[in-house]
């Protein structure tokens, strides 16, 4: 089971990358006692049956893990939302993409910790492939609010497979999160 909300989000973004998305939008908004988050992609999408199955922990398309009958990414998130009294919307269209949004009560006793958002956004930019990641972040109570794209970071620091580039990008993202 994942520890923090950031872990769920990274898992969902990794799904989007594997679904061949060329643009992925991720947002984390903390406002009015609620933590709202979303991941939207233009990847290969799912039909209605596949979408229902994605919520089943004992289903996978069998391509990633031949011989195994498990797919825990989305089920982990749904279980955590149910425990904490959160809610979600999961929509998908075959060939067009998938969008997932969810919200947790910010001070719920069963709400997972938010986690390391700067680390999340950096990791989300580090997968192989040529995709755009659009980050939207708002937490007005902490005076945090920014938008950044993967292409902007790559343009500033170069390839993110380099330790120096990773450290610089991390410092940049951490400074955006500082209140």
């Amino acid at each position: 089971m994942h520890f923090a909300i950031c872990d769920f989000l990274l898992d969902m973004i990794q799904n989007s990358v594997e679904a061949g998305a060329s643009t992925i939008a991720v947002g984390v908004i903390e406002e009015g006692g609620v933590l709202d988050a979303y991941v939207e992609d233009d990847g290969k999408g799912m039909d209605e049956l596949e979408l229902e199955r994605a919520k089943d922990p004992f289903y996978t398309d069998g391509k990633k893990h031949p011989g195994r009958r498990m797919g825990l990414g989305i089920p982990f998130l749904l279980q955590s939302l149910e425990i904490a009294g959160g809610s979600y919307e999961l929509r998908s269209r075959k060939g067009e993409g998938t969008s997932l949004s969810f919200r947790f009560p910010a001070d719920g006793i069963d709400t997972p910790p938010t986690g390391d958002l700067a680390g999340l956004f950096l990791s989300a930019m580090c997968f192989d492939g040529d995709y755009e990641l659009k980050v939207l972040r708002r937490a007005p109570a902490r005076d945090v609010g920014y938008e950044i794209r993967r292409s902007e970071i790559l343009d500033a620091v170069g390839d993110l497979s380099d330790a120096g580039a990773l450290l610089a990008a991390r410092e940049f993202l951490a400074s955006q999160e500082a209140s």
Binding site: Y146, E152, I153, D155, A156, V157, G158, G164, A165, L167, A168, A169, E171, F172, A174, S175, Q176, A178
Partner: peptide
Amino acid sequence: MAKMNLEQLRKLREEKKGDMV
């Protein structure tokens, strides 16, 4: 920590490049 802009990020990256062996 002051919030960095993209220009400062670019500068930081250039500084770190200088450390490489």
